[in-house]
Design a protein around this nucleic acid. Structure first.
Length: 109
DNA sequence: CCATTGACGAAGA
DNA sequence: TTCTTCGCCAATG
């Protein structure tokens, strides 16, 4: 297993319940801007203890779908954690987006 | 080795 | 603002 994939898993495991992070932000945080697609590839074959449902695309939309067994699973898991969708497949990244150390959006609210 | 594909993203039109 | 195209890069056929 590649070092990159291990780093992805390690970081995704740090995402708090009820928060999400994008593929690109994940890649950048790991020092590999441009490897957003590889993040997706790594998550496709990730261990079950990795909260992969908390990873969405840069628009705050769900891309996984079938990787979770069914298209709706990811959304249901997020809603179960308190994430509310502004539209069927659209959530608010400004509100739920999370990043390792730097600017944690909306410390309040 | 070459072409295609994909849980993406940014730049153009 | 929405739709296309292009760049990325590992994996597959």
């Amino acid at each position: 297993m590649s070092r990159f994939a291990e780093d992805v898993y390690r970081l995704v495991r740090c995402v708090p319940v009820g928060r999400v992070i994008s593929y690109g932000a994940l890649a950048r945080a790991l020092g590999h801007p441009g490897k957003a697609r590889e993040v997706g590839w790594a998550l496709f074959r990730c261990p079950s203890d990795v909260p992969a449902h908390r990873v969405v695309n840069r628009e705050g939309r769900l891309s996984g779908g079938w990787a979770f067994g069914a298209p709706e699973v990811q959304r249901l898991r997020l809603e179960a954690e308190g994430v509310r969708f502004s539209a069927p497949e659209q959530l608010d990244l400004e509100r739920y987006g999370w990043q390792p150390v730097e600017s944690v959006p909306f410390s309040g609210r």
